[in-house]
């Protein structure tokens, strides 16, 4: 009810320092047409922490993260059931505009996808410009701040007018993160953000995530367990059963999950017995 427009405007004007936004997933199931992909996920995503979703291919972890900002339903025939709460408000509630939800909950994709016909500069402010408002000085400030936050400013400050597609893969991904930061979301979702990158670029993204945790709530999907162990505070382990429907096995602080998991299946997975 209050995620509708007036409330959103109010939230966007709230000072950055008072941020701290948590999410709760309650009985989330996702479908592609008639086929159920994910069943009954219930878990909490604490504010200003990094929550990792891990699990073997096809366990539905990408589907779950796409449900968290209503990107799942962009695919034709896809739909979700259950509740996803942002600071207590159901983003699937009646009257909620998915476009507004995505402004509050940003997303970084597996493959870097800067807009190829836009410059580095225009890529950063794309989300704001496509939504209307922005004067030049304001835009300059947002571009510099976002690129600094994304640890990319020093590398691109002299080629802001070059094509976004001309950067290296790792730079492109950080550009995509800067683009997401520019709209000042409350939560950032990252769907395997480093899986298409080389080890050095991966390290930069991971360092960046640690910095961003100070100001944002982060959810990251990864099939790389070492990465989950390195970067995340909480880890959720998902697995698809024989019916090929993904379910949550367990969720907990990352240290505990990797040292003494409660479930045998989690232990088997993280010790490399399958997957």
């Amino acid at each position: 009810m209050s995620l509708a427009k007036p409330m959103v405007a109010e939230r966007l004007e709230r000072p950055v320092s008072s941020r701290g936004h948590s999410m709760q997933i309650r009985g989330l199931s996702a479908y592609y047409g008639a086929k159920k992909a994910v069943d009954g996920i219930t878990m909490d995503i604490p504010a200003n922490h990094i929550t990792a979703l891990i699990g073997p291919s096809g366990c539905g972890k990408s589907t779950v993260i796409r449900c968290l900002n209503r990107m799942h339903e962009v695919v034709r025939g896809a739909r979700a059931e259950g509740e996803v709460l942002l600071d207590g408000e159901n983003i699937y509630g009646p009257g909620i505009d998915p476009v507004q939800v995505r402004r509050l909950i940003g997303m970084v994709f597996q493959k870097p996808n800067p807009f190829p016909m836009m410059s580095v500069y225009d890529n950063v402010i794309a989300g704001l410009k496509l939504n209307g408002r922005l004067d030049k000085r304001e835009a300059d400030a947002i571009v510099e701040r976002s690129l600094r936050q994304a640890a990319l400013w020093d590398e691109v400050k002299d080629k802001l007018q070059a094509s976004g597609a001309a950067l290296s893969g790792g730079q492109q991904q950080r550009l995509c993160i800067a683009r997401t930061l520019a709209v000042e979301p409350e939560v950032i979702l990252m769907d395997e953000p480093a899986s298409a990158l080389d080890p050095i670029s991966t390290l930069k993204i991971e360092d960046l995530m640690q910095e961003l945790r100070e100001r944002y709530t982060i959810v990251v999907v990864t099939h790389n367990m070492q990465q989950a162990a390195r970067v995340s505070d909480f880890t959720a382990f998902m697995l698809a059963g024989d019916d090929r429907v993904g379910r949550l096995v367990e969720v907990g602080p990352t240290d505990e999950m990797f040292t003494r998991p409660t479930e045998k299946r989690t232990e088997d997975y993280i010790t490399g017995r399958f997957g």
């Binding site: 900002n69 990107m71 962009v74 476009v99 507004q100 939800v101 995505r102 402004r103 509050l104 940003g106 997303m107 994709f109 493959k111 996808n113 800067p114 807009f115 190829p116 016909m117 794309a126 989300g127 410009k129 496509l130 939504n131 995509c176 683009r179 997401t180 709209v183």
Partner: peptide, 28 residues
């Protein structure tokens, strides 16, 4: 590529704006 449409939608840009400002210029 659909990844560009998704990138725009994930920034909280409407469908109409996505088509006008991302899809059409890319295919120009």
């Amino acid at each position: 590529p659909d990844t560009l449409r998704e990138a725009s939608l994930a920034l909280g840009v409407s469908r109409r704006r996505t088509i006008l400002n991302v899809v059409l210029p890319t295919a120009r």
